[in-house]
Simulated assay, not measured.
Amino acid sequence: MLVGYCRTSSIEQMAGYQAQLRDLKLQGCEKVFSEQVSSVNSNRPELERAIDFARESDVLVVTRLDRLARSVSDLSQIVARLEAKQVGLKILDMNIDTTSPTGRLLMNLVGSIAQFEREIMLARQREGIAKAKAEHKFKGRAPTARRKASQILEMHLAGQGASQIAKIVKVGRSSVYRILAEAA
């Protein structure tokens, strides 16, 4: 049985999400597990359900490697769990299928290259930020909630609750509480 897994990092990525679902169905996946959660988050319940659901000689199918794992160690752990259950892994965009020795070799190579690229990108990003800071051009992320502090305080004084304020002002509830605590 082909078991599909699709993931996007956020619900804003609806087109990519729908494209993954379409591709998995076209591939012939009989059961598809899907979620919209960042892979950085270690809690991916639908991935866990997909792995638990898969039985011996099934194949877990994903559209792209980055939809499944974020690092070589993460990928290795997932592949090891699948291998322990004698479940294969197929990555559509790379045409990799671990049910063959060549597919397993390619999986290890691709995972290593993907992690290498990510580490290089992060190193360049850190270098760019350090340079911008040295030139006094880097300000960091704009403090969205703090810019809205006066509006939050006015709404609180008008009797609105933190959850309602957060929804109207479009900031996190914890940010509302932090601003109210700082003002007290």
Rank of each mutant, 00 (worst) to 15 (best):
M94E: 12
G103R: 11
G16R: 03
V62S: 12
V87Q: 06
K131I: 14
I91V: 15
S112Y: 05
R104W: 06
Q20W: 02
E127M: 11
K139D: 05
E30N: 06
L24Q: 15
V176S: 09
A123V: 02
A181T: 05
E182G: 11
R44N: 05
I168F: 11
R44I: 01
D97W: 00
L75D: 10
A184H: 05
V32H: 00
P101A: 13
L26G: 07
A142N: 09
D66P: 04
L24D: 15
C29V: 05
E119A: 06
H156R: 10
I152C: 07
Q151V: 11
I129N: 12
V62W: 00
M155Q: 11
H136F: 08
N43W: 10
E127N: 10
A162S: 15
H136M: 07
R49A: 09
G16T: 06
E83G: 11
A84G: 14
Q20Y: 01
K139M: 09
V37R: 00
G128N: 07
P101W: 01
I113S: 12
V176A: 12
G128D: 07
C6G: 10
G161R: 11
H136W: 11
A15K: 05
S76A: 13
E117H: 14
V3A: 09
M94R: 08
G4M: 14
V37H: 00
A158D: 13
R67H: 14
L92N: 10
V32G: 13
H156C: 07
Q27E: 12
S163C: 12
R81L: 11
